[in-house]
């Protein structure tokens, strides 16, 4: 198992897991989000090549209404 902090919540996933797999498991549309892993941007093109590690802090954001 792999323990990650995603958007501030601790969640457990089956290892191994890459960012593309995380997006699929969370049922997100990869075209509509941006992802940060341990404060570094993960480019969309690198989702499949970015293996997640125990304790990684992941932020997944999208656009919402704002002024």
């Amino acid at each position: 198992m792999l323990s990650l902090t995603v958007n501030g919540e601790t969640r457990r996933f089956q290892a191994p897991l890459d960012v593309a797999g995380l997006v699929t498991q969370l049922e997100l549309d990869p075209r509509k989000v941006a992802i940060e892993r341990n404060l570094a941007i993960v480019p969309r093109s690198a989702y499949g090549a970015t293996r997640l590690e125990e304790g990684d802090r992941i932020e997944i954001v999208t656009f919402v209404g704002g002024g």
Partner: peptide
């Protein structure tokens, strides 16, 4: 204008 926030997981 738009804001950026965490997605609702």
């Amino acid at each position: 204008t738009v804001a950026l926030r965490r997605v609702n997981l």
